[in-house]
Structure formats: structure tokens, C-alpha cells
Design a protein around this nucleic acid. Sequence first.
DNA 1: CCAGACGTTGTT
DNA 2: GTCTGG
DNA 3: CCAGACGTTGTT
DNA 4: GTCTGG
Length: 245
Amino acid sequence: MCGRYVMAQSVGDLVAEFDVDETYVETVEPSYNIAPTDPVPIVLDRRDRETGGTSRKLVPARWGLVPPWSKDTKGAARLINARRETVTEKPSFRKAAAAKRALVPANGYYEWEKRAAQEAAGKAGKVEKIPTYLHAADGGLLAFAALFENWPDPTLPPDHPERWLRTCTILTGPASDTLGYIHDRTPVIVPREMWDDWLNPETTREEDVRALIDSMPEPHLTPRIVGSMVNSVRNNGPELIEPVG
DNA sequence: CCAGACGTTGTT
DNA sequence: GTCTGG
DNA sequence: CCAGACGTTGTT
DNA sequence: GTCTGG
């Protein structure tokens, strides 16, 4: 799955990498330990009323989707992932799948591997999960397939600047055999040549979105065992992704 | 009809 | 908002 | 995802 | 054990 990740690029990097037209994010704090409910930058495409063309935007969002009908934001921390198999059907995700697709930029993400070998060896003691950092083999930026939603805070008046909360969720799929030994689910990673198709706001029919999702390939990632400092969200910094012997 | 859920993960 | 369960 | 809390009362 | 916070 994807419950903790790394995004240490600057706004400038993201604008260049994703060919962003408009940015609504002034600065991005590099984070090597992004956790559910944290603010994150996301990329989306919207149709421009003036020009009729499509504009790519870098916007702030909070990780953990809050459906627009939610009474409050409690429980958002559980909607950090959406299963690709069912996302076009689930009431919490189907509207967003049709009309609010996004990309979440990331350098990599963490899994906590509970290894069979460790289990066998540790019958006497307790089983420690092994934090593992997964990243592109070439170190390149990843783009997680994501959905977003806009949630109107019912406790605030319609004209209040904080009335609308944008939240997001990252799609997951079954892990390939090569990654499956670490974890049975992995985030859906959109290859660069599919970014435009994924973000295209004109693609709204369920069957078209379904086909789009089904066309997403298995991610090819490199695992690296890291230290347990990443376990606590209070820790941050490049040392979290340093390899551990 | 109204009430209540709406989700994923891991673990057993 | 929309679906399911009662 | 993991870490850390998990409770009430009265008094300062 | 289970929920909340980050």
C-alpha cells in the first residue's frame, strides 16, 4: 500500500517536471516522512473557461480523502488509499474517479515489511517490521495515481476563506511478485507518457475511466531497507532514506 | 419508508 | 449524494 | 503507515 | 484491544 512517503522536490522542480501552467502552492516543505492528514502538493488539469484549453495546476491538498457529503473530517485518515479494482464503484470515490483525478508527486514511499524469514527466526522474540523505502531505479520522480475532492466545511459560512478543504487519496493495486514479498499492495504509478490521459478532465465516462485504470502498468521499483527512525512521524530528513546494512 | 453506512489495511 | 439494511 | 493514548473530578 | 493524531 502507501501509508507514508517522500516528496523533497521544490515548487520549481514540480512546475518543470509536470509542465505546470499555474501554481497555487507558494512553497513546499521537503518531507521524507509524509503521513496521512499532512498537506501535500498535487497536480491536476482543469478546463479553462476563457481559452477553452486545458490548464495544469499545482495545488495544495490534504492526504486522506473526505467525500463532499461527510459531516466532518474524522475518518479521512482511513481513506488515504483507494483500490483500483473498485474505485469506479465505491460511493466514496466514484465521482472523484470520474471527474477529479490527480497526480501526487513523490520521490518514493515506505512499506513496513513483516518478513517470513524474520518471523521464523524470531519465534522466541517479537517480530519487528522492517521499514523499506521504494523508489524508481533511476531515482526519478514518481507520480502516484490519485483522486481529490473538495469538502465544504458546514461549520463555516459559504464566503469563508477556509470553507473548502481539498483532500486526496492514492490508488493502490495488487503487488507484482517482485514487490509482493514486501507487501501485497502497491501504489498505482502513472508513467510519464500517461500523465495527460490520466489527468484529462474530458474523460468522465465510467467505462473510459475503467479502461484508463486498467491500462496502468505494474510499477517497477527498487527496495532499500532503512532505519526505524522513519517509524515516528516526528522524525524527518534525508537520513530517513539512508540504506541500512 | 427511515437509518446508517459510505474505506483500506493487517491480523487472526 | 447514494446505496443498503431493516 | 506507526506511535501513543485510552478518564474524571476538583482545585490551583 | 481500539481509536486518534501525525
